[in-house]
Design a protein around this nucleic acid. Structure first.
Length: 578
DNA sequence: GCCGTTTTCGGCCCGACTGTTTTCAGTCG
């Protein structure tokens, strides 16, 4: 089983335990364990081999045993018997918003509800409303949840969610009652996908702000409206929450609703150890609970962190992966800023499947403030993308050289290629062609299903090709659409480091590949990075900002990002490399 | 099930909103 499969198995165990009504802390332990395994940057096999998996916080002896069994392809009797003891239909029912394990169990016990269809019938017949603790409104909500569940369960790409959120934030800030307003949640943490939008506002008056929020033109339904919180749903299923708090609580609320959950738990534990209970309302001194939470004069998040003896942790690092320890020890990274990016590699023109010409791309790059632009059209194996054969590649190379010599005013062009990694790991163009170019991006675009060992060997062979400069979108995932292919990234990263090959952050909002979770450890081991928008039009160049987000989230130091070098620096680097 | 400068046993983050209730359970984040 791959690591991702094991993570799913642990998550499944947690869900099944929940449906059985078992100890909530045990359930949480499995959720924590799954999360720890998922975000762990070390190589799983190496840790198992060295008997060091237990050093990962959240993974103890019981989980080690189960993870080891699953990794070696064994059956897990514990999971099998859990599956046998829970009606499979209940898991699906659990996904309906507003229904948790307890109510799902209650309906199962009282009415024998064991599928979405049975649930719908039971709601329509009035049977659900008759259960003690349930009522007509509950049944109604369940029915609407069933109807819309596909749309409600959907997550959204960060890039798209951000585009929805920006104007709402501006709208909030323009209200006369609003003193401060920020986006919170996973959007603020720059997660690759976003479940819903969270806004936190400090205002002199609550009601007009809430009113403005719930009556926005795009709102389809209002799902909650209280004294401090309102929730709305837009067409398409995206949900947005607004919290309005007094100004002295703004820093606490903003921090709380930014999360992550894991980060908040860790910070609250730290507060408890120092004699304070921390909540979105403030800090309560433990031996003076009567007094209630107060702001302690804290005006912003930096003040909150300082109060707890920490440097300010940027939102994108708040994932519960050791950021508190780093903030305590002065080891937080200096994060990449968009202005530090001097150019990008891996972009397409109308020579293959891009929409715009070489000249238009160079001009657009200049417009964005770039000094240089790398062109990497597809190679011939990507037939569907009008990939270039050796002759066309060399022709484009001439065109690039001529453009650079013409003094046209656009960004300096580097002549590259996105060369297909064929099924056996060989490259799609002649060695002489590849050697003539400024750089070579190698990518997998075919035979995704060949299995982990074969895929790993295939990609490593491509990395070892003397002309390879950059590995493109190393897992092939399309967020919310297609899973990554099976590949041992730890081995691929090792090979890249050993061969001086860069791995890209493919900044297309649907890819964001290599994932931020991998970068911190990989960079510590010496891996270098290139941020590449994989632009297929002039507009697509703007995606580089999504790549900057991922670099920040991955703790990547600028010194290891090729795009941070100036034109002369990149020329020098490529020359030394080739 | 995990974890330990107050603990190897007994804790495990904290609060808002809803719908059902006459004080609270369930869900969510």
């Amino acid at each position: 089983m791959t690591k991702a499969d094991i993570v799913s198995a642990l998550e499944e165990i947690a869900v099944l335990l929940e449906l059985r009504g078992e100890n909530p802390f045990k359930i949480r332990a499995y959720q924590t364990g799954a999360r720890a395994l998922e975000t762990m940057e070390e190589d799983l096999d190496a840790l198992l081999e060295a008997d060091e998996l237990g050093k990962v916080p959240g993974i103890g002896s019981a989980l080690i045993e189960k993870i080891a069994t699953l990794r070696t392809g064994g059956e897990l009797p514990f999971l099998e018997s859990l599956r046998d003891s829970v009606e499979p239909g209940l898991i699906e029912i659990l996904e309906i918003p507003g229904l948790g394990a307890k109510r799902v169990r209650k309906m199962h016990e009282a009415l024998g509800v064991d599928s979405i269809e049975a649930l719908q019938a039971a709601c329509e017949s009035g049977a659900v409303a008759g259960i003690k603790g349930f009522g007509a409104k509950t049944a109604e909500k369940i029915l609407s949840g069933i109807e819309q569940r596909a749309a409600y369960a959907k997550r959204h790409l960060w890039w798209q969610a951000d585009a929805v959120a920006r104007p709402i934030l501006e709208g909030l800030r323009s209200l006369p009652q609003v003193k401060r307003a920020e986006i919170a949640g996973s959007l603020r943490r720059l997660k690759e996908t976003v479940g819903d939008l969270d806004f936190v506002v400090a205002a002199s008056e609550v009601e007009p702000v809430m009113e403005w929020f719930v009556s926005q033109a795009a709102v389809e339904s209002v799902t909650a409206q209280g004294v401090t919180k309102s929730s709305v749903r837009f067409a398409g299923g995206l949900q947005a929450d607004l919290r309005v708090v007094p100004e002295e609580q703004f820093a606490f609320a903003l921090h709380h609703f930014t999360g992550s959950k894991e980060h908040n738990v860790a910070l609250r534990q730290r507060a408890l150890a120092r004699g304070y209970s921390l909540s979105e309302w403030g800090l309560t001194q433990k031996d003076d609970a009567e007094a209630g939470p107060t702001g302690h004069g804290i005006e912003n998040e930096a003040g909150l962190f300082e109060f707890l003896g920490l440097a300010e942790i940027p939102p994108e690092l708040r994932e519960g992966v050791g950021e508190l320890e780093a903030a305590e020890g002065g080891a937080l990274p200096d994060l990449l800023e968009p202005e530090m990016v001097k150019g990008v590699f891996h972009n397409h023109t109308d020579a293959s499947d891009g929409r715009d010409t070489l000249e238009a791309m160079a001009a657009a790059a200049k417009e964005l403030g770039f000094d240089y632009l790398g062109l990497a059209d597809h190679s011939k194996a990507s037939f569907q993308a009008n990939g270039l054969d050796d002759v066309r590649v060399l022709k484009q190379l001439e065109k690039v050289r001529a453009y650079n010599a013409s003094g046209s005013g656009g960004a300096h062009l580097f002549a590259g290629i996105e060369c297909d990694i064929l099924k056996d790991g060989s490259l799609d163009l002649e060695d002489a062609t590849l050697a003539a170019l400024d750089y070579v991006v190698v990518s997998v675009h075919s035979a995704f299903g060949i299995g982990e060992a074969e895929m790993t060997a295939r990609v490593i062979r491509a990395i070892e090709h003397p002309s390879t400069t950059i590995l493109g979108h190393p897992t092939g995932r399309l967020l919310l659409r297609r899973e990554a292919y099976a590949i041992d990234l730890a081995k691929v990263i090792d090979a890249a480091i050993a061969n001086g090959v860069i791995i890209e952050i493919n900044a297309n909002p649907q890819r964001l590949d290599l994932d931020w979770r991998m970068w911190r450890r990989a960079a510590e081991r010496g891996l270098h990075c290139a941020i590449n928008p994989d632009a297929h039009s002039t507009k697509g160049l703007e995606y580089y900002r999504a790549g900057v987000n991922i670099a920040r989230k991955g703790w990547l130091p600028a010194a290891q990002i090729l795009n941070c070098r100036d034109l002369a620096g990149v020329k020098r680097w490529l020359k030394e490399r080739r």
